[in-house]
């Protein structure tokens, strides 16, 4: 019987043989883990590359002064922070721009502060309404009703000469302490 042979072989091993076996198992496991660790590196780096690649927020023109009426809210669209050279429409993002008066502008993220759905501006009632869970915001972006824990997020916005520019920003994420 094979197993009998094995049994004898095991019984006959000297202490030296046993040490040798221990050493060989260690080598096998060690070499194996090393290769596995090295192979894991490319998976991890490529998984992280899109997240970690350098992204510089940019000021992007969203219109000229005369495009915005005082006390009115308007949706504008612009390229997000760092699209690849080959990115098409999907890198286009949007914001609501409100001209308070003269050169004073406010820019709101279109993402609801609750769970990120796109809010709609309803001109007649001067409210932002969210289709997902019924969040509502006033024209100044503050929370009016529904589940959002805070008001709408804002983008930095400035007027340069005759141009209105928005500074790109990440999709806003509401944290625990909103």
């Amino acid at each position: 019987m094979d197993s009998d042979k094995e049994q004898t072989a095991l019984q006959n091993t000297s202490r030296e043989g046993e040490n040798r076996r221990k050493f060989l198992s260690k080598i096998t496991l060690g070499v194996g883990s090393f290769v596995a660790a090295v192979l894991a590196v490319p998976v991890i780096t490529s998984m992280l590359d899109p997240v970690l690649r350098k992204k510089t927020p940019r000021w992007r023109k969203v219109g000229s002064l005369e495009d915005f009426e005082v006390d009115k809210t308007k949706m504008v669209s612009f390229k997000d922070t760092s699209p690849y050279k080959w990115s098409t429409e999907i890198s286009q993002t949007a914001a609501y721009v409100r001209r308070e008066q003269g050169d004073t502008f406010t820019a709101f993220s279109i993402n609801c502060a609750h769970l990120g759905c796109p809010v709609r501006w309803v001109e007649e009632s001067e409210l932002f309404l969210c289709p997902c869970h019924g969040g509502v915001y006033y024209k100044d972006g503050s929370r009016a009703s529904g589940p959002p824990p805070r008001g709408l997020f804002k983008y930095p916005i400035r007027v340069v000469g005759n141009n209105v520019e928005i500074k790109t920003a990440p999709i806003p994420i509401t944290n625990m302490r909103a």
Binding site: V51, Y84, I173, N175
Partner: peptide, 20 residues
Amino acid sequence: PFIGNWIAYFLLGGTNIGGE
């Protein structure tokens, strides 16, 4: 808490939606 933003952007593959 603490790592929320990081996980969120990790999921999206960056701070915005894109081809990635």
